[in-house]
């Protein structure tokens, strides 16, 4: 089992997300995260999918997704020449005494405190998945009330592999 990050450029049609997620579920492919958003050209949507499987399955995923009529382009975002980012919002229970500790950890990770209440605060953190996992691990001594992660969005580095619209 290996993880692979795919970047898709798809026609911005109404059913496109369900077509892609339906393909994963009916063929039994594992999807770890999926993010989608419109590109600079509103006719297209950029989707980043993190999938896992053995090499043959990952190869099939690429071919089956490429076959969908709405999909213009699919390519792998290989870790060595791509950047990945994920956003996490973490609500932590904090009393007076605990607050400074959480803020200190957040500072180290260059995370932001975006909401403070008398008994909780919300931390906003951006980074690759490892960084977010590490941050969550460090919060072990605290009670995480709610956690929202976006799944990663990614782009290849440089201009070599850009798909022009």
């Amino acid at each position: 089992m290996r993880k692979k990050v795919f970047q898709l450029l798809v026609d911005n049609t109404s059913g496109v997300l369900s077509r892609i997620s339906g393909l994963f579920s009916r063929r039994g492919y594992n999807i770890e995260s999926i993010t989608a958003g419109v590109t600079a050209d509103p006719r297209f949507t950029r989707i980043t999918i993190v999938a896992s499987g053995d090499d043959e399955i990952l190869d099939q995923i690429e071919k089956q997704v490429a076959k969908l009529v709405d999909v213009r382009d699919i390519k792998e975002l290989a870790p060595q020449n791509s950047v990945y980012r994920e956003l996490a919002l973490i609500k932590v229970r904090t009393n007076q005494n605990e607050r400074q500790g959480v803020i200190a950890i957040a500072d180290i990770f260059r995370a932001k405190i975006i909401d403070v209440a008398s008994d909780s605060l919300i931390v906003e953190l951006t980074g690759n998945q490892d960084k977010i996992d590490a941050f969550i691990n460090l919060l072990e001594g605290y009670e995480i009330l709610e956690l929202a992660r976006t799944g990663i969005a990614g782009l290849g580095r440089g201009t070599e592999n850009v798909t022009y619209l």
Binding site: E56, D59, Q60, K63, Q64, A66, K67
Partner: peptide
């Protein structure tokens, strides 16, 4: 004609 058929069941 369908690239996804190639390698799906045999390599």
């Amino acid at each position: 004609v369908d690239p996804a058929e190639i390698g799906k069941n045999v390599g």
